[in-house]
C-alpha cells in the first residue's frame, strides 16, 4: 500500500503511523461522561470508505487524513489534517 503524501509524494505505508478514525471529535471539557465514552471508545468501524489519521513519521511529520476503502485498501484521497499546513 502506498500513501500519496501531499508534501513528500507517494511513499510506502510503512513510513507512516496509523492513528485510527479521523471522524470522532473531542467533546468540550464540560460534556457528559457518555459523550467522552463515545469519543474515546466507540467506533463506526465501516467496511468501505473510511476517514483515518496517519502520521508521516519517517518523512515530513505531517498529520494526514486518508480516505481509504477498508475492503480493498484503495485510497481515494489524502489531505493535510490541518487545512493550512
Amino acid at each position: 500500500m502506498r500513501i500519496h503524501c501531499p508534501h513528500c509524494g507517494p511513499r510506502g505505508h510503512d513510513e507512516f503511523v496509523h492513528h485510527g478514525d479521523a471522524v470522532p471529535q473531542r467533546p468540550q471539557t464540560d460534556a457528559t461522561d457518555a459523550a467522552f465514552h463515545d469519543y474515546v471508545y466507540l467506533r463506526d468501524n465501516p467496511a468501505g470508505l473510511y476517514r483515518e489519521l496517519w502520521f508521516h513519521a519517517a518523512g515530513c511529520h505531517s498529520w494526514l487524513i486518508v480516505e481509504r476503502d477498508t475492503r480493498t485498501h484503495e485510497i481515494r484521497s489524502v489531505t493535510f489534517a490541518r487545512g493550512d499546513a
Binding site: 463515545d38 466507540l42 463506526d44 477498508t70
Partner: peptide
C-alpha cells in the same frame, strides 16, 4: 471480525475496530 457490521444492523456501536 464482522461484529461491528452485524451489531450496526441492530443500531449498536461497539468499542471495536477490525
Amino acid at each position: 471480525g464482522h461484529s461491528s457490521r452485524v451489531a450496526a444492523l441492530a443500531g449498536l456501536k461497539l468499542p471495536i475496530e477490525s
